[in-house]
Simulated scan of single mutants.
Amino acid sequence: MESFKEIYQRACERKLGEQNLRLLISTPLTKQELLSHSDSLWLEAFTKKVFQSGFYWSVINAKWPGFKEVFWQFNIDALLMMSPEQLEEKSQDERIIRNFKKVQTIPHNCYMIYEIAQKHGSFAKFIADWPEDNIISLWAELKKQGARLGGNTGPYALRAMGKDTFILSRDVESYLRAHKIIDGGLQTKKSLTAIQSFFNKLVEESGWSLTALSQLIAYSVGDNYVNVEGNE
């Protein structure tokens, strides 16, 4: 198993120096910053990643103002009152991507956020309080309680909102397999536990966040594009 220093050195060499590499590494939000996110903003983030999954992100991004108009700026209180008839009507609106199965995730995830917020004060507090050394359990919780938030969809939404998490991108997965950290299915409990342990070890060695370490690994392997973001 490689050390942080070995991974860091290789990434620096591939990106033509420490300064270039550092420009590519992101910083997650602090707990206090996470707490400022509204429940509606979380629903918007989940919905965006659900629709981006398996689709060109640029197309979803171009359509996003229309999504916000159609779904009342993702206002939780308003969406909780939405009738099935209203949902079906909205699913046919030309301002959005008309995929009814994905549209159905909006009220489901809206209710999930509402229920969790009732127990924790806000959904943001639930997320902010979750320990990063067991981030895979948060992924599992989102998959269990939410709609279409399994795989990389939930983690990508967390990352987009600033929660510290690693991402199992193709480059990261390739690294994990090449270094025998995992040898089975990527999303099995055994693999995820091994991956979490590996990242926890790197955090302890380096003091870096899961976000930064995940990006570092991606930049240390795979196709090398200097001064541009890798496959993360």
Rank of each mutant, 00 (worst) to 15 (best):
L29Q: 13
K189S: 12
L23M: 13
D171T: 09
Y56P: 10
Y156N: 10
Q118S: 14
F74T: 04
S214V: 04
F67Y: 15
L168F: 07
Q187P: 00
S174A: 14
P155F: 07
N200Y: 09
V50W: 01
P65D: 08
G54P: 03
K144G: 04
E33D: 15
M112E: 03
I76D: 08
S197K: 13
N75V: 05
F51S: 03
W64N: 11
S169M: 05
R98K: 14
G66R: 01
E115Q: 14
I182F: 09
S36P: 01
L138G: 04
S122D: 02
L176R: 05
L176Y: 00
I97K: 12
R10G: 00
R170E: 11
L213P: 03
Q145P: 04
V228W: 13
S26W: 11
K102P: 02
K15I: 01
T30V: 05
L158N: 04
T153P: 06
T30Q: 10
Q215A: 09
S220N: 11
T188V: 08
E89H: 12
D171E: 15
E2L: 15
V203C: 14
V228C: 12
K63A: 08
K201T: 11
G66E: 07
A147K: 10
L168T: 02
S220P: 07
K101P: 07
W130C: 04
C110Q: 08
I60T: 08
H37T: 00
E44K: 14
N99P: 05
T165W: 03
E205L: 07
N134A: 13
D129K: 12
N20F: 08
K68G: 00
R95C: 02
A62N: 15
P65A: 08
L210W: 05
G146I: 04
L24M: 09
G162F: 01
Y111G: 07
S122V: 08
D39A: 06
L87G: 03
Y8V: 02
F100E: 01
W57G: 11
Q196N: 14
G17E: 03
L24Y: 02
I76T: 06
F55T: 01
M161I: 06
S36F: 10
V70Y: 05
W208Q: 11
A45Y: 02
N231G: 00
M1W: 09
G154R: 07
L142I: 08
D133W: 03
E33C: 04
E229P: 01
T153F: 02
R95V: 05
F100V: 11
E173F: 08
S169F: 01
K5M: 10
V203Y: 06
T188M: 07
L21C: 03
N134Q: 15
D133E: 13
I217H: 00
Q187H: 15
A117N: 08
D164F: 07
D93K: 09
K119Q: 15
N75W: 04
L24G: 03
E205G: 00
